[in-house]
Amino acid sequence: MIPAPFEYVAPTSVADAVAALGEAGEDGKVLAGGQSLIPVLRLRLAFPSTLVDLRKVEELRGVRDDGDALVIGAMTRHDDVLRDPLVARHAALVVAATATVADPAVRHRGTFGGALAHADPAGDLAAVALALDASMVLEGPGGRRTVPASEFFVDYLETAMQPDEILVEVRVPKLQGQWGVHYEKFNRVAQAWAIVGVAVAVRRDNGSLAEARIGLTNMGATPVRARATEAALAGAPADVGSVKAAAASAADGTTPPSDLNGAADYRAHLARVLTARAVARAAGLTG
């Protein structure tokens, strides 16, 4: 199928991009890798008047070390993330999840920022951003502001970004200490989106689990933290039994969807099973 007509601009700076977006008004839309947007346009599920393509905005690309945080440019492609030594060192959970996103060709175009801005609750990276307490740096006509992940994802495909704002970069705090990470994705075929996904980082300390961060994919209209399980794991002994017991509350407070891939109760069950597995893997309790 074929997109409806639109205007197209490809500015070279964030400032110009913001200006272009402002000029385009309500129906302007940012184009990043296009891997979510172009299929939507082809199916004529959206009719933007103008696309503001960020591909020429060099400052949006790449990863830099900023002390206790890693800063990932919004236009850094999934494939770049997978190859980046800084991300591998300081945010291995991002790598683990990105490796499960779509397929190699899609990862050559899709971007880290685009995945977060798209805010699909079935997307893998939002739960990771939430679990790692990342924050989003947005730029609009009024300048820059920083929004924590916990406030960024507002609803299904909806973020705290204003229509004239651009996601510039994502600040991912480095994990300090003995952390293990794992992303557990459950889907029916390899290429598909997650039915449920679990992003886990756990810190071990003297044979017990000191701290856990757990983000759930596709367990509600936005990514959610498994707070009850996190609490139960804090200070728990590092054994599979304790992990399983803690994971029993993984779905508490979630509102998973019911669709072709699974009814809500099945998803809740999966969240518990997968959380137990992901935590055990991250903590090095299982292979």
Partner: peptide, 28 residues
């Protein structure tokens, strides 16, 4: 294991694209 064309009660095909109609790949 994978494929099914599903209609809702109004007769809409809800597996109307390759996103929902799951054709297995080499990995599956």
């Amino acid at each position: 294991l994978y494929e099914e064309a599903v209609h809702d009660a109004e007769g809409n095909l809800i597996t109307g694209s390759m996103v929902d109609y799951l054709i297995p790949s080499a990995a599956d």
